[in-house]
Design a binder for these strands. Structure first.
Length: 642
RNA sequence: GCCCCCAUCGUCUAGAGGCCUAGGACGCCACCCUUUCAAGGUGGAGAUCAGGGGUUCGAAUCCCCUUGGGGGUACCA
């Protein structure tokens, strides 16, 4: 495969690669089949698919679209070329003690001009080297490496999905490497089930990682593994020991009670809560005495006093006084397990992450991380803090107020293209008036510098609109494939409710595609649109059988006459055009409004007032069933008379 | 409380001193199309650019203050 085909590489480029497909399939075990991408604005035929020629191949593609690095070596072709991304722009990060304390308050120090100066950008924005000092490591050229580090304490969250997407887009745009790391050090809340949901959801979205943990029985991929933090414990322990040895950290024996008392006292004194440093300078004897009391120490990192400054790609220059950070930071629990602020830095350093792109909720924590990077002697990455996704009341998005799990959107019939497109637009814009973008198109256009800095309310209405747009753009056979599970589920529900259900007929479904595809805001709306086709019997509401301008008697006559006319058309000529003219003629002769007659017929055969266009519906239903339903409806109305 | 970030139609956003009488999209309303429902088309309502001071011939845009919102401040991530 051509090395230069980067724009294409994360589409089905693994096609044909030999790989243990069945194993992947089993792991994925997706009730809803993963989808392929379509190209908007072009014809509905999926070129990949045309080349493939059958639907089975598409499943192979689904398997192939596992994250890069999870399959055969074939995907190595997609690895960024060494050196292609050029130099990594590094800002000089002042040593806290070297920075003169400015009189202006840090809040006012944000240099807007600095932000402006980032534009315009070259095609490879981060190759700009306006840094007055080279990176600490001395190497001037560095391949961009960024990561998403979800914590399996819940299913993949839309906020995390967006962060993952932005990291992915940034890495792909610039030819960098995108790493997936599982941050599972919160053993109490982490669950395998959630990790699985996260991986599946990322995969479903098409966000593929270059390096990450082993999945589906396939080994971890990438030179910096393992990629699960609980498997990296020795590294954290060694690093903590090193910091201890260098006196950059110390053992703290304070009990929860002592700390709570400190906090209470601080509150009373109207001080900011902070660690008082009781254990910061313990002698060996003091330590031994605490140990004999059976106290298990935590490890605290010494937070240096001073101002830590960094240049956030999205927010510009930020300065934070470390005295506001709450004092020395616990990096290892008393049970020996490491804490987030520690592991994130140890791993970012070890994995040579050059760009940390994460939610704004971490902005205030960044100085702690920077101090830790320095203590470790590691290069500081460039930071980009994304605006938060908000509830309608503008608080940080929460599952109480907004549906947050990506998998829940998927189950409701949102399609991957729409969710990706929507999430990309939540906080970023291309600067043009286009707004329908494929993942590949996003890769072409994405710039971190164009990310908005204010929080964005999650607007489900807009997502639904975008979903409809994307559903309409699907190739018909792709649409059928994607909607089928939703139809099956809807019919299962009807069967469970006691209705006699007919197995969906492929031909019927395909014939109706053009009619239903543009009527679905979500795939899960399929049931209410065409369930009548797959029920042996419908039960129309008698009131709805009588159009507004008609009385019951007219309705009875109308249904009978319609039955007669349709029977006259006959099974052989049972086509939309024939039905159309015959029924219009009937309305004309009787002096009825065609619409009234059609309404009565529609309700009679579908039991719904809203349905796909009537004549196509009748054809899909078939001659016999149409007549039968007209008869039943007529009888129903007549029965009411008696 | 303290620290940090943010601020343009209800919502997502465009906007980098004059192209702004502030553009687009969702949603809403009306009309057209139409057998229903959608989709689509056309048009409309909707933002004194949070408020106040500066700087400037000129400010949505630069600076300051105020207000409002959000986030952080754990042996959570």
């Amino acid at each position: 495969m051509a090395d230069g085909g980067r724009a294409d590489h994360h589409r089905g480029a693994c096609l044909g690669a030999a790989r243990p497909r069945h194993r992947l399939r089993r792991w994925l075990d997706l009730r809803l089949r993963p989808c392929r991408r379509v190209v908007p604005g072009r014809d509905r035929a999926d070129p990949d698919r045309a080349a493939r020629g059958d639907t089975r191949a598409s499943r192979a593609v689904a398997a192939c679209r596992l994250p890069r690095g999870m399959g055969s070596g074939r995907c190595d072709a997609h690895r960024p070329r060494a050196g292609s991304s050029g130099q990594h722009r590094r800002q000089s990060v002042a040593d806290p003690h070297a920075v003169p304390r400015r009189r202006c308050r840090p809040a006012r120090c944000r240099l807007r001009r600095g932000r402006r100066a980032r534009r315009p950008r070259s095609p490879h924005p981060t190759t700009v080297d306006d840094s007055p000092t080279p990176p600490a490591g001395g190497s001037s050229a560095m391949t961009v490496r960024c990561r998403i580090a979800p914590s399996p304490t819940g299913p993949l969250h839309i906020g995390n999905a967006r962060t993952a997407l932005y990291n992915y887009l940034y890495a792909r745009r610039i030819g960098g490497t995108f790493v997936l790391r599982i941050e599972d050090t919160d053993a109490a809340r982490s669950a395998l089930e959630h990790e699985r949901d996260i991986l599946e959801s990322l995969h479903w979205l098409g966000i593929e990682w270059d390096e990450g943990p082993e999945v589906a029985g396939l080994p971890a991929r990438g030179p910096f593994g393992p990629y699960r933090q609980m498997e990296r414990l020795p590294l954290y322990r060694e690093t903590a020991e090193r910091l201890l040895r260098e006196d950059k950290a110390y053992h703290c024996y304070c009990t929860q009670e002592e700390l709570a008392a400190d906090r209470a006292a601080q509150e009373l004194a109207r001080e900011a809560p902070h660690y008082v440093g009781r254990c910061a300078r313990l002698t060996a004897e003091e330590r031994a005495s605490k140990e004999t009391q059976g106290r298990r120490p935590v490890v605290r990192f010494r937070v240096a006093e001073g101002i830590v400054a960094f240049d956030d790609v999205i927010r510009g220059h930020v300065e934070i006084d470390t005295t506001a950070l709450g004092g020395d930071l616990v990096i290892v629990r008393s049970d020996g397990t490491p804490l987030y602020h520690f592991t994130v830095v140890v791993d970012d350093a070890a994995m040579q992450i050059t760009d940390v792109i994460r939610g704004e909720d971490h902005l205030s924590n960044t100085p702690k991380h920077i101090l830790l990077f320095r203590a470790l002697g590691a290069d500081e990455p460039r930071f980009s803090h994304l605006p938060l996704i908000l509830n309608p009341d503008r608080t940080k998005v929460s599952k109480r107020k907004v549906q947050t799990a990506v998998s829940a959107y998927r189950e409701q019939g949102f399609i991957q293209e729409a969710l990706v497109n929507y999430l990309a637009l939540l906080g970023w814009s291309s600067g043009t008036e286009e707004e329908i973008f494929t993942l590949d198109e996003l890769v072409e256009r994405f710039e971190l510098e164009r990310v908005h800095s204010g929080g964005a309310v999650f607007d489900r209405e807009r997502l639904e609109w975008l979903n409809g747009q994307w559903i309409r753009r699907l190739a018909p056979e792709d649409f059928v494939e994607r909607v089928r599970p939703f139809l099956a589920r809807a019919l299962e529900a009807r069967a469970a409710a006691g209705d006699a259900v007919i197995e969906p007929d492929e031909g019927q479904l395909e014939a109706l595609v053009p009619l239903i595809q543009e009527r679905l805001p979500r795939l899960d709306a399929i049931g209410e649109l065409i369930d009548f086709l797959f029920l042996t019997e419908v039960r129309p509401d008698p009131a709805q059988l009588v159009p507004k301008r008609w009385d019951r008697e007219t309705a009875v006559t109308g249904l009978r006459e319609a039955r007669r006319v349709i029977a006259e058309v006959g099974a052989v000529s049972f086509e939309a055009d024939e039905l159309d003219s015959a029924l219009r003629r009937l309305a004309d002769v009787r002096g009825w409004k065609a619409g009234d007659l059609f309404t009565a017929i529609r309700v009679a055969v579908t039991a719904r007032t809203a349905a796909p266009p009537l004549f196509d519906t009748l054809v899909a239903l078939g001659y016999e069933r149409t007549l039968e339903r007209l008869d039943r409806a007529g009888e129903l109305l007549e029965g009411l008379e008696a």
